[in-house]
Design a binder for these strands. Structure first.
Lengths: 415, 415
DNA sequence: CAAGTTTTTTAAAAAAATAAAAAACCATTT
DNA sequence: AAATGGTTTTTTATTTTTTTAAAAAACTTG
């Protein structure tokens, strides 16, 4: 079988993974090849029992199209979702269904020289547990916090390696392709491919958690910037509050908006004697941060004034940040995602308020505010999508740079 | 001649326009076709005296490549650069050289129902004057202020039309393809293709003028957003100064940074008795705004303390805005362009200062601050580039949207 | 049931890539 | 100064891939 038809097959598999069900005509358009060629390749894929005919879609005025989909068990992804304290690993099939229950374990990233080795051990372990043959695994996708350079496969904040890249290390040990990406980028990718930003051209996915991350979707793809650092929403300078941020500067967006700050403010309010159900619900201990944040969100949902006030204030400030995003990038939708998205509707009013005050109306009306449809699954799904996005990607040969005017000048063009 | 080889020819012409001098191997790579095919097409183009062999480039260790370039007079563009008060029109050849001196005339855009008709008259007139045959004109590119939707061909701020699009009107009257774009976008395109951001992947081009515009270059292309409104840098909410902006909101970036504000502040300073050479140089009259701004920049260059102070303050504030851009988009370069770029080096110190204070170091070090190499020509060159960017573009057939999960659910898939 | 759509299949024609050889050049060595 | 081995670019002939065009099949609408 020729390399080319092999590459087309991979492209078709990728398309079917992302769209689930497609007709031959749709596939032909998506891979930008003629119908007859697409038909031929499809038939081969069917013969190999990779693709299956899934019945007819309703007619749109003519003959009904035969729909095609992937056999779910032909290929799997290893999806890893990390935060500073916990890591989750899942094996997913071509319908993003888990082969095993998600493996969740504590893994502290800060100042932990063993983290990468432990992570890799766990990945190996999970693969083994699943019983899935390695030849059927398309790759390992990992979302992690920090300054991640996906191209180099490095993380400048955590998981330091000596000389080697993170992806290189994992690939070598597991014998599988490995890809990394910043966690917020991964969430953005998930919402783009399978969530609230599905099929959108330009979308901003706000990842509300201990910081406020941002997955930037531009022209239908995750945008990473020159070094993979795009989306540092948390640290745009927005306030004159003098509050020192974890990044060393002051006045960053996250000093007024993260779930962490909200919990802090709740504690202060209780101390100051605010009337609120939170008084009896919050533990206030460092290790219960996660639970406390959820409690505040839950209480706001139940109508607790103080909780609502806390979220509203943060929401308004996030809204100020979103106003900047809208001015700069004119997205069709802004999606609230991450842990904080649980509070869904509660954010919307104050954010809208901020947009009304800080956005040029013509811009604001063109941008929808949506809420994540994926929730806690987002990062795992995004990691799977990251792997499949690379599946069958044609690697362009690296070319030496084009001759510059200068080299031409210096050396002269001769007849 | 087949439609396909026709389209390849146009692609090659486009590549040669943007790169000026290319070898067959480079062209083959750029149009993503095999060498033999590229050779064949090139030979046809040479036979048609469209492309010429320009001699040999220096060897890079093997046989020297034959370089190819365009015959400058095979094709022309009509380049239009508009601001709120004046419009410039030029006819340019394939080396961006003017066929005629630039035609500059007053054309007030605000509340002027005749503006579009007058503009079109002028365009027709300039074409006629140039003596260039219309069949040799690739199209008309126009950069204009306001909320421009390039796809629809509309401007929501100026040049209102009844029902018809601006591009449609001009195309119909001139019988030429017409394209419009926001002025700052055009300047960004110019710097990307021929200026300080040449061959950069991600660049922010700041257009310092009466407002502060932004041309956003992402992944090697001008980014326009969902509706073409991306880059509204002028109106991001950045200050708590309570100053009302022309857009109706308060605290916008431009309320502290535009050349307009700088001239205003200069007047105030003189009134307050500041010691400065500006006292004798500034006219202060509305109609001399342009001259006054230049005087301030010039005086700062000569060392006038007050002038430097004015620019530094504005520069610092622009720097705060740039810090946000860097956090969000991680560009490789930020280019200072537009009228204000005259002050070039004077901006750099305060901007760098702002970046040091407001940027995470890891981000700041990855972003270069550059100064426009095109100056006042930028907008005209950008308009030409806009036309040539579209030249020979393959128009994808509009497909009906993919079946959604919902339509599938409702109607059911049948065997 | 006829006319108009949309999808699928097939055979023939056209397009494009590959592979191999030739040409032109550089850097060493003899 | 000529020869040699290694590069890069150009050309040519052959093979493979891909598209086109036309017909058939399946469906909707009036």
């Amino acid at each position: 079988m020729s390399a080319k038809s092999q590459s087309y097959k991979k492209k078709i598999i990728r398309q079917l993974y992302f769209s689930n069900l497609l007709s031959c005509a749709e596939l032909s358009h998506k891979i930008d090849k003629s119908l007859s060629l697409t038909t031929k390749i499809l038939n081969e894929l069917i013969a190999e029992t990779i693709v299956i005919e899934t019945g007819y879609a309703p007619s749109s005025g003519g003959r009904r199209p035969l729909m095609y989909s992937l056999k779910p068990d032909i290929l799997y992804t290893v999806s890893v979702a990390m935060d500073q304290f916990f890591t989750r690993i899942a094996i997913m099939d071509m319908q993003n269904k888990h082969v095993l229950p998600v493996e969740k374990f504590e893994l502290r990233l800060a100042d932990n020289p063993m983290a990468l080795a432990v992570l890799t051990d766990k990945i190996e372990y999970v693969i083994e547990q699943s019983g899935v043959d390695k030849s059927k695994i398309a790759g390992i996708g990992i979302g992690m916090p920090g300054f991640v350079d996906p191209q180099q496969g490095l993380n400048y904040s955590f998981l330091q390696t000596k000389g080697e890249s993170i992806t290189g290390y994992i690939a070598k040990r597991t014998n599988l392709a490995a890809y990394i990406e910043n966690d917020s980028g991964i969430v953005g990718l998930a919402e783009l491919k399978f969530g609230a930003a599905r099929n959108r051209r330009n979308a901003m996915v706000i990842n509300i958690g201990w910081g406020v991350g941002l997955g930037i979707i531009l022209e239908g793809a995750l945008f990473r910037g020159d070094n993979g650092f795009a989306g540092e929403f948390s640290h745009i300078p927005l306030f004159d509050n003098g509050k020192l941020c974890s990044c060393g500067k002051s006045g960053c967006l996250e000093t007024e908006t993260s779930l962490f700050v909200i919990v802090e403010k709740a504690k202060e309010g209780i101390q100051a004697g605010r009337v609120t159900v939170l008084k009896n619900l919050l533990s206030g201990r460092e290790e219960d941060l996660e639970k406390d944040a959820e409690t505040i969100i839950f209480s706001a949902g139940k109508g607790d004034r103080f909780a609502i006030e806390l979220l509203s204030e943060a929401g308004y400030n996030i809204g100020r940040g979103i106003a900047i995003l809208i001015h700069l990038l004119n997205p069709g939708i802004v999606v609230l995602s991450g842990r904080g998205a649980l509070a869904g509707k509660i954010w919307q009013a104050p954010i809208q308020q901020a947009l009304n005050e800080h956005c040029i109306p013509r811009l604001a009306v063109n941008t929808e505010i949506g809420i994540s449809t994926l929730g806690y699954e987002a990062e795992l799904i995004g990691s799977a999508a990251l792997v499949m996005e690379k599946f069958g990607e044609t690697i362009k040969k690296v070319r030496k740079p084009e001759r510059t005017i200068n080299t031409m000048m210096n050396s002269g063009i001769s007849k």
